[in-house]
Structures are given as structure tokens and as C-alpha cells.
Design a protein around this nucleic acid. Structure first.
Length: 761
DNA sequence: AGCACGCCGACT
DNA sequence: GTCGGCGTGCTC
């Protein structure tokens, strides 16, 4: 007998469990086991010795050969320690998310006593019961009495049929054919699109169903041809690099430092450099992983890579892709059939064979941090991978995080800069002081409306950025623009309407709403916060017949919505685009000549230690949308024009923001000078949530940790989806080993967030 | 998350 | 003496 330590998926445990098997197995193989009377999937972490307690036997080996190697197991262990995630869950992340779907359990009747008369799948069987629990009870009884038998089916991923559809006849000829309505839909779709149309695309866009015979008929009638993608021999689309780009490329290819930070302004042509560097790696038979923020991973960005590397196998991996396709891509990546994988943060876990390089574009983007029951930072995972697997890591952004900038300044990583745009100059930035300027309404100044009018008359486009409506309201003095801050935490107070109080969500301190501004004595304090909808309404008053496109989470819910909006924006002619943070990425429209940023104070005054960094990054990214081909303009409205922060922005000087902020953070020992761990306890009963938080707080206090441990407080949102919440924040030097052990032994449900970009959730 | 185990109080 | 309610802790 051999003995194995197994991480059991979906059990939320930090421990592994020992199981036996008569044959020799290897770490990384998945197995089916019985765990507390349930069939569970797990992965072998290591071989171990016989135990002095009874262990169960592995029921079934799922993977004939391990699909993970020792590096991947190491990655799981290290990430588990770093982000204090249960090993059982990290191990699961390394496999495709629906991997358990591949395993189907069939119930086979063995006796006429059974009320099941033919074999059925477990999922089907569950439907006959009110609860799964009840069903399992009956099932267990039946298995015990030998009335039924369970058998396990492993569903093999289907071979994908994704051919390109080419029209062979012209429209007039086709009209002469008698075609069904759905056949016409297909033909029209192909005619309307000026790019290749894929079979899969027709299914996904619900033009025809998967079971449809329309394509077959069209082929039979000689109207279309289906051809394999690889058969198309296109010339790679290569762009000549500028001198500055070439220089950066050479540095990236130099041996030595394995992590590079490419710090280049928007429009400086970072993508072209990546392509050149990728080429070198691909020539050495190394595979490449590209991680993009959710919103940037558009079909256009994938097409761009495909056009540059027409003869390479490219895999796309993100949550919007259906599970069958994702499983197939995952297996292809593991088996070495994919050269370049492009994906969102979850793709960082793919055990890509022969991986040679990871590129993370828009490194500052918050979607790279998973803020869920499980939380991790894809950038940190990439660091671990690069270390364990000796892979080159390139991080890139126009506004890198303070964390990466600090590392670069301290020469821990290699800093490469691109300060010039390829086609044009950086836009001029004008700051308008809302205290002095002539206002038309409390949203727009006269000056801004005049500027907008000018651009529209010129048949060009204006982009207006506005924060969303929602939480984090703050009180601002209408005279001096002062916003009240907590003295202990250097974080703005948040106004709680219900109690009519100001609260600091870090230390929990409260304050009565003052009658007047404590700085200038003005009695008028205004509650601030408006959203895109209001901005659009306001704009319609001044420009009643103007095309206005609104872009925020309320309007844009899916990738398709986003694409449609982009299509609309691309159309020629004047337009006003009003949007939230969403518009900061992927919008590469040449005739956006003016960018207006409203209520920039709103972000700057977020009750958050990261608010300056995020606002700077946001403003620079939004400003970067202006005049990508021809010099444009940016106008920022603010109540705090005297804040030197705006001076830095005006000069496009992100370095100064970084320097200033790094200094600021030092005073309060915030990251990146330290680590910050947020722990959330939630329960439907507030007293239980509080008790759990207090119990754990006491345990932490006993351990004499170096870091500062804050007492349990109510988070900014004390009740979320019916659950009451309490939080503990730990700040300072975090001893991961020690805290991991405390959590492992404590064995209670809690949510842990290491250096989250927000502590507001 | 679910289940066993054990402590304690109530009731035969 | 026995049953069951519930809090605690373990799951291999």
C-alpha cells in the first residue's frame, strides 16, 4: 500500500488528508475519494507514510498521468501561505473551474426492489427530491443494501469544431437560392462582418443552435465553405519599432533581472514591444502567458495577437468563455498545444507547458485582484510563478502600482520607461477651480460647457468621466472644499445618513456632524455624490439633439454590451461619451479630442488610504484617452485645486505622485511599506459575527505578533446580503507562517484579504 | 458544511 | 436511568 496526502477540493480546509492506494501515484494526479461520506475530487500533494489511524482508500484515479508538476504543487502551497487561502481551494484553482463537471456519477439499479428502473445520472436523480441532503440519505441506504450501485463516468472534453465559414457566392446568387430564414440569418451575419466568421461564434451569438443543420445545408448547396483555421496562411502583421521602443526591447531581452516593469505612457506602443519580445521566446519554443484586465480582453485585442502570430496556436481563457471550451483550452495548454495563452486573472493558474514568459498588461488594474470568498492578487501569483518556474515576468502600465514603483526604485526589479507617445504629444491638462469658476449648475462650469460645444461643432468627440453613484458619501465645505478626516487614520470620514454621524471605518471612531466647517466656519456643508445618469440628463438640457452614449455597469452588463458600445463610439461624427471607470480601458478612439473629469474630489476623498494612488492612476488613464492621434485636451474640475496632487497630474508627472504618496504612506506605515491584512467575519446574527471576530482577535493578541492588530470594528458596509459583518485589520510586518498556523488551528470560516486595493467591502 | 460526540437537564 | 438539545470540534 502507498499513502498520499490529498488536498480535497471544495472542503475549504488548510489541511491535507491521507488516503491509501495499492499502486504508485504521483503528485498532481487527481483522484476521487470518499470524504465525510461524500464523493469528492482531490489532488495528490505528496506521498507519505503509513498512519497510526485508519485511512480510506482512493476510490478512483481520475488522471492517468499527473497534469501538474512539482512546480505547480509548490505554487499552490506558496500561494496558500501567502494569501492565507485554504490549500484545498488553491489546488482547485490550478484546474479548470468546472473540472468536477467532467465527473458524472451514474446510479445503476441492481435489484427490483429499487424504484429506479434504469441507470440514471446523479444530477437527474437529485431532481426527484426536495433537498440534496435527503436524496443522499436515501441513496446511501440503497447502496448499503445493495439495491443500487454507483459508477463513475469521466466526460472527455469534446473536440472543438471551430471552422471558419467562407461565402462562396455573392449576394445576388444567394438570393436566387431558396433559403430558410435561419440560413439567411447566417448569410447576413457573414456579409455584415468584415472579419472571419467562426462556427463557434454563430452558436455563441445564438444565430443558430448547436444542433442546427443550417451549416450543413449551406455547404451542400455550395454557398459556404468550412475551412480549418490553420489552413489560412497569412503574413504576420509587423509594425516597425521606433528607436525608443527598440531600446526597451533590447533591455527586455537582456539576461539578468527576471522581473521587468515597463512604465510607459498611454499610446507609447507597449504592445508592439511585447510582440517583438514574444517572438524571441516563441523561437526558442517557449510558451507565453498574457494576462489582461477583464475589460481589456476584447476580441479586438485577441485578433491583434492572432494577426501578429498567424501560425501560432493561441488560446483565450476568461470567465465569459463557456466551460467546455475552457476545459479544452486548459488541456491544450497543459499538453503543449498552445503557444500563447491570453486570459484574465484566473488564467494565471494555468499549468502552461514550457512556459517561458508571463506578461501582465495594465498591472495597476484592480481586476487583477480577486476580491471574493477566496482572494489573491494575480500579480503576486505571477511573481511566485516566475520564481518557482524561472519564468520571465513583465509587468506593464502607464501608472504602475506604488508597490511595483517602490520595488523599481529600490532596484528589486528592472525599470524600463517610455515617456513619449508614438504618434503625438501628450494632451494639455487644465484644472478648473470649482470654488472660483462660474458654474452653470453644480455639475458643470461655464468653461467646460463652452469647450464641449466647440468640440461638438467641429464634429469630434468628447469623453466625460464621472464617478458612479453609490456609497462613500462625504461632506464637503462649499466654501473651502475641506473634507473631514480622521486624525488617527488619515482617512476621510464617511457620512452615515441613518445615524447622521461621521464614521471612520478604519478605527471605528465616530463624530457628530459639525454645524459648520471646522476650517473656515462656513455653515454650508454639502453631501456629495452624483452619477452618470444625472450627468446625461444635465447634458441633454444644453445639447438636446446630441448623440450621448452612456457607459457604466448599469448599462453595460456583458462583453457584448461593451462591444456594441465601442462600435457605436467608433462611428464617425460628434458624440458625447459619459462613463465611469469603465471607460479608462480599451477605448482607442482617434477623434476623442476632449476629456472632461467631473467631481475628481469624490475619488480623492474616498475613505481609503489608497485613494490618492487610485485617483492619480484613474485621472492619468482617463486623460490618456484624449487625442491618441492628434494632440487633445483634458479638463479637470475640482474643489481642491490647491492640492499639489493636481500640479503633478497637470504635468503628467506620475513619478511625483508616487514619491509624494510613498512618503505619505510611510508616516502611517501603510503598504507598500508594510502589509495589511483584512479579516472579515460574517453571520446572519450580528452578535455571532462580533463574537467570532472577538475570539479570533484574542487568539491573535496572545500570539505576540509584530504587526499592529486593530480591534474588531464594523466595516463600511456592516450588513451585506443579509449577513452582518465585523472586521479585524492587521498592519505591519505580517508573519505568514505564524498566522497561517493560527488560522489552520482555529478552523473557523473567515474571509482574508492581503493588501486589498480597497477595504470598503 | 454536516455530523458525531459529550455534557447536562428534564422526564419516565 | 434514559432521552434529546445543543455547543464544540473534526473530517484521513
Amino acid at each position: 500500500m502507498y499513502y498520499y496526502e490529498i488536498a480535497v477540493f471544495g472542503t475549504y480546509t488548510y489541511n491535507t488528508f491521507t488516503y491509501s492506494y495499492e499502486e504508485k501515484l504521483a503528485p498532481g494526479q487527481r483522484v476521487l475519494i470518499e470524504f465525510r461520506n461524500q464523493q469528492k475530487l482531490g489532488v495528490i500533494i505528496s506521498e507519505t507514510n503509513k498512519k497510526d489511524y485508519e485511512v480510506k482508500e482512493i476510490e478512483l484515479v481520475i488522471d492517468e498521468k499527473p497534469l501538474l508538476n512539482k512546480n505547480h504543487i509548490e505554487l499552490a502551497k506558496k500561494t496558500s501561505k501567502k494569501f492565507l487561502m485554504p490549500l484545498s481551494e488553491v489546488a482547485k484553482l490550478l484546474f479548470p473551474p468546472t473540472s468536477s463537471d467532467r465527473i458524472k456519477i451514474k446510479i445503476i439499479p441492481k435489484s427490483t426492489l429499487s424504484n429506479i428502473n434504469k441507470p440514471i445520472f446523479l444530477n437527474e436523480y437529485y431532481k426527484h427530491f426536495k433537498t440534496k441532503r435527503e436524496a443522499n440519505k436515501v441513496l446511501k441506504e440503497m447502496v448499503k443494501n445493495n439495491i443500487v450501485e454507483l459508477s463513475v463516468h469521466i466526460v472527455k472534453p469534446k473536440k472543438e469544431n471551430n471552422k471558419i465559414i467562407i461565402l462562396k457566392k455573392d449576394f445576388i446568387e444567394i438570393l436566387n437560392e431558396r433559403l430558410s430564414a435561419s440560413a439567411m440569418k447566417v448569410v447576413n451575419y457573414i456579409l455584415e462582418k468584415d472579419e472571419n466568421v467562426y462556427e463557434e461564434e454563430l452558436y455563441e451569438k445564438k444565430i443558430i443552435s448547436r444542433s442546427s443543420t443550417v451549416l450543413k445545408t449551406l455547404v451542400k448547396k455550395g454557398i459556404v465553405d468550412l475551412i480549418e483555421e490553420s489552413k489560412i496562411n497569412e503574413e504576420p502583421f509587423i509594425v516597425e519599432l521606433t528607436e525608443a521602443q527598440k531600446e526597451v526591447k533590447e533591455k527586455l531581452l537582456k539576461k539578468g533581472s527576471s522581473v521587468d516593469l515597463l512604465y510607459g505612457v498611454t499610446g507609447s506602443g507597449k504592445t508592439e514591444i511585447f510582440f517583438e519580445v514574444m517572438e524571441e521566446y516563441l523561437n526558442k519554443n517557449k510558451k507565453i502567458m498574457i494576462i489582461l484586465p477583464e475589460i481589456s480582453l476584447t476580441p479586438q485585442s485577441v485578433t491583434r495577437v492572432k494577426k501578429r502570430f498567424p501560425d501560432k496556436n493561441i488560446g483565450v481563457y476568461h470567465s465569459n468563455i463557456n466551460s467546455i471550451k475552457r476545459i479544452k483550452t486548459w488541456y491544450d495548454a497543459v499538453n503543449g498545444n498552445i503557444d500563447i495563452i491570453i486570459g484574465t486573472r484566473s488564467a494565471i493558474w494555468i499549468p502552461l507547458k514550457d512556459i517561458g514568459m508571463i506578461i501582465i498588461d495594465e498591472e495597476h488594474d484592480q481586476s487583477l485582484y480577486q476580491f471574493d470568498q477566496l482572494s489573491y492578487d494575480a500579480v503576486e501569483v505571477a511573481y511566485l510563478r516566475s520564481e518557482i518556474e524561472e519564468v520571465k515576468l513583465i509587468l506593464s502600465s502607464a501608472t504602475p502600482t506604488l508597490r511595483e514603483m517602490k520595488k523599481a526604485y529600490e532596484k528589486e526589479i528592472n525599470l524600463l520607461e517610455l515617456k513619449e507617445r508614438v504618434f503625438t504629444e501628450m494632451p494639455d491638462i487644465e484644472i478648473i477651480d470649482m470654488k472660483k469658476a462660474e458654474k452653470i449648475s453644480w455639475i458643470f462650469t461655464k468653461k467646460v460647457l463652452e469647450e464641449i460645444n466647440k468640440i461638438l461643432k467641429n464634429n469630434e468627440k468628447v469623453l466625460i468621466f464621472s464617478p458612479t453613484k453609490g456609497y462613500a458619501n462625504y461632506l464637503i465645505c462649499t466654501n473651502c472644499g475641506n473634507v473631514l478626516k480622521c486624525e488617527n487614520c488619515d482617512v476621510s470620514y464617511t457620512y452615515h445618513r441613518y445615524e447622521n454621524k461621521l464614521k471612520c471605518h478604519y478605527c471605528g471612531s465616530e463624530k457628530k456632524v459639525p454645524n459648520a466647517c471646522p476650517v473656515c466656519g462656513n455653515p454650508e456643508l454639502q453631501l456629495r455624490g452624483y452619477g452618470t445618469e444625472r450627468v446625461v440628463n444635465e447634458l441633454l438640457k444644453y445639447f438636446p439633439n446630441q448623440k450621448i452614449i452612456r457607459m457604466d455597469r448599469e448599462i453595460i452588463k456583458t462583453h457584448e454590451d461593451l462591444e456594441r458600445a465601442f462600435e457605436e463610439i467608433k462611428k464617425e461624427g460628434s458624440a458625447i461619451i459619459v462613463g465611469t471607470k469603465m471607460i479608462t480601458k480599451g477605448l482607442d478612439i482617434e477623434d476623442i479630442k476632449l476629456v472632461v473629469i467631473l467631481d475628481s474630489d469624490r475619488y480623492l476623498n474616498f475613505p481609503e488610504y489608497t485613494s490618492q494612488e487610485h485617483t492619480a492612476s484613474l485621472l492619468i488613464q482617463v486623460a490618456g484617452r484624449s487625442g491618441r492621434k492628434e494632440k487633445g485636451k483634458v479638463i479637470i474640475q475640482t474643489f481642491k485645486s490647491e492640492n499639489n496632487f493636481f500640479e503633478f497630474i497637470k504635468e503628467h508627472n506620475y513619478d511625483q505622485v508616487v514619491e509624494y504618496e510613498l512618503n505619505n504612506r510611510k508616516k502611517f506605515n501603510y503598504p507598500p511599506h508594510s502589509d495589511l491584512l483584512m479579516i472579515i467575519f460574517s453571520n446572519s446574527k450580528p452578535e455571532i459575527a462580533l463574537k467570532e471576530a472577538e475570539d479570533f482577535y484574542k487568539k491573535l493578541k496572545k500570539e505576540k505578533l509584530e504587526a499592529e492588530i486593530m480591534e474588531p470594528t464594523e466595516p463600511l458596509i456592516p450588513k451585506l446580503r443579509g449577513q452582518y459583518r465585523y472586521q479585524i485589520i492587521i498592519k505591519g510586518k505580517i508573519n505568514h507562517e505564524k498566522i497561517y498556523e493560527i488560522i489552520r488551528k482555529h478552523n473557523k470560516k473567515m474571509y482574508l484579504y492581503l493588501n486589498p486595493h480597497t477595504t470598503l467591502l
